[in-house]
Amino acid sequence: MNTLFDLLLKPFQSHPPLWGLLWISALSGLMMILVFKKTSNQQAISALRRKMGSRALGMLLFLESPSTVLKLAFGLIIDNFIYLWHLLKPMLIITIPFIVIAAQLDARYSREPLDAGNPSTATVYWESLIPSGEMGTPEQGFLISPVVTITDSLEQSFSFVGDEGLFVFDGIGIRLGSRGPSGSIVVRGAEKSGIIQALLRPWNGSVKEGVLEVRSHIQEKHYIILGGRWGWFTVFLVFSSISAILGAVVFKVKV
């Protein structure tokens, strides 16, 4: 999945991150509307929408007859449930790629690069024993605080700054950040993971022996659009929705 997204983002590697985020958002919206078209019963939805329209019109025409209006309104409520039932299957199918895409975008576009201006904090959770002695010094980047050890919960935390986008501390097997081009995954943790975890949390790297997991707090990234500060998820939701609506018009998808 990482490779697929790297490939999709290749044309945007030398552009600001927002470009890649907009591209994937637009593509996702379009793909999702097409998946919706394929997996939904378009004929049934179309018929149902006509039926609902006629019931609404009927209510307007027979306003002087409360019993007819009530009957039509009840029918409209039932139609809504049927409509939701028609949506259920495509929505469930779309949810799976949605989660994967969201995880990829979170990994690539939600954090500021690791550099001297953005101090971050990392916590190492050890499996059973905190190694004795000094932690040493990182190979890339700098520690900017002493290491705090919480013996009871087998945790060690420190603040750091990266260097050229990376923080590498081989002594505890940490490699955080990213040196790749725009849109690369920014690694912000590490854990022992299987396929599902790798799919859902692509921002995690691998851990060394004895370490349960590593978590870091890297500054969140915002995008300035039309004067507002947007998080990556808002950008994704808004622009994938716009793309989906346009796709529905162009490909005549009944939603």
Binding site: T121, T123, S145, P146, V147, V148, T149, I150, S157
Partner: peptide, 9 residues
Amino acid sequence: VDKDSRAVR
């Protein structure tokens, strides 16, 4: 508080 390293999280 870590009194040995004279630091806090």
